Simulated assay, not measured.
Amino acid sequence: MLGENHALFIEFPELQDKIKELKNSDEHFKQMSDRYHHLDHKIRGLECNNIPTDDTHFTQLKLERLQLKDKLYSLLSN
């Protein structure tokens, strides 16, 4: 679905407390979650505003977001 919000709180609602905790206590987690949020915002902006972009660039953004999501989930589940 175009323009869908993939914020961590939406993706992992059962882990909201852990997300908040790690954002406050783990600088590496905070940096990764900030980058994830930035990528999600950028991707949604491109999708919702029909901004022309190269398919390779768009795919690269989505892949980076997915990889970050996997890393963040790994930290959250430990």
Results as ranks from 00 to 15, higher is better:
Met1Pro: 01
Met1Cys: 06
Met1Val: 12
Met1Gly: 14
Leu2His: 05
Leu2Pro: 00
Gly3Leu: 04
Gly3His: 07
Glu4Asp: 10
Glu4Cys: 03
Asn5Asp: 15
His6Glu: 07
His6Ala: 05
His6Lys: 13
Ala7Tyr: 11
Leu8Thr: 10
Leu8Glu: 05
Leu8Gly: 11
Phe9Glu: 12
Phe9Thr: 07
Ile10Asp: 06
Ile10Gly: 03
Glu11Leu: 14
Phe12Met: 13
Phe12Arg: 12
Phe12Ser: 11
Pro13Ile: 07
Glu14Asp: 15
Leu15Asp: 15
Leu15Met: 15
Leu15Thr: 06
Leu15Asn: 13
Gln16Lys: 15
Gln16His: 14
Gln16Gly: 04
Gln16Asp: 09
Asp17Asn: 15
Lys18Leu: 05
Lys18Phe: 01
Lys18Ile: 03
Lys18Gly: 05
Ile19Ala: 11
Ile19Gln: 07
Lys20Trp: 06
Lys20Gly: 10
Lys20Pro: 00
Glu21Trp: 06
Glu21Ala: 12
Lys23Trp: 05
Lys23Cys: 10
Asn24Leu: 12
Asn24Tyr: 11
Ser25Phe: 08
Ser25Trp: 04
Asp26Leu: 10
Asp26Ile: 10
Asp26Cys: 10
Glu27Asp: 13
Glu27Pro: 03
Glu27Gln: 13
Glu27Phe: 14
Glu27Val: 15
Glu27Arg: 15
His28Pro: 00
His28Lys: 10
Phe29Thr: 09
Phe29Gln: 03
Phe29Ala: 05
Phe29Asn: 04
Phe29Leu: 02
Gln31His: 13
Gln31Asn: 15
Gln31Leu: 12
Gln31Trp: 09
Met32Phe: 08
Ser33Gln: 11
Asp34Arg: 15
Asp34Val: 07
Asp34Gln: 15
Arg35Phe: 08
Arg35Gly: 00
Tyr36Ile: 02
Tyr36Trp: 10
His37Glu: 14
His38Cys: 02
Leu39Ile: 06
Leu39Ala: 03
Asp40Glu: 15
Lys42Met: 10
Lys42Pro: 00
Ile43Gln: 01
Ile43Cys: 03
Arg44Glu: 04
Gly45Lys: 00
Leu46Gln: 01
Leu46Thr: 01
Leu46Arg: 00
Asn49Pro: 01
Asn49Gln: 05
Asn50His: 04
Asn50Tyr: 01
Ile51Gln: 05
Ile51Pro: 02
Ile51His: 02
Pro52Tyr: 08
Pro52Gln: 07
Thr53Trp: 01
Asp54Ser: 11
Asp55Gly: 04
Asp55Lys: 07
Asp55Trp: 04
Asp55Gln: 07
Thr56Trp: 03
Thr56Arg: 05
Thr56Lys: 08
Thr56Phe: 05
His57Phe: 04
His57Ser: 05
Phe58Pro: 00
Phe58Asn: 00
Thr59Gly: 02
Thr59Met: 03
Gln60Gly: 01
Leu61Glu: 04
Leu61Ser: 04
Leu61Phe: 03
Lys62Val: 01
Lys62Asp: 01
Lys62Met: 03
Leu63Arg: 05
Glu64Met: 07
Glu64Gly: 03
Glu64Ala: 01
Arg65Asn: 06
Gln67Ile: 02
Gln67Cys: 05
Leu68Thr: 07
Leu68His: 09
Leu68Gln: 09
Lys69Ala: 13
Lys69Leu: 11
Asp70Thr: 13
Asp70Asn: 14
Lys71Val: 06
Leu72Asp: 06
Leu72Ile: 12
Leu72Ser: 12
Tyr73Leu: 11
Ser74Val: 09
Leu75Ile: 08
Leu76Gln: 09
Ser77Phe: 11
Ser77Met: 12
Ser77Thr: 12
Ser77Val: 06
Asn78Met: 12
Asn78Gln: 13
Asn78Lys: 11
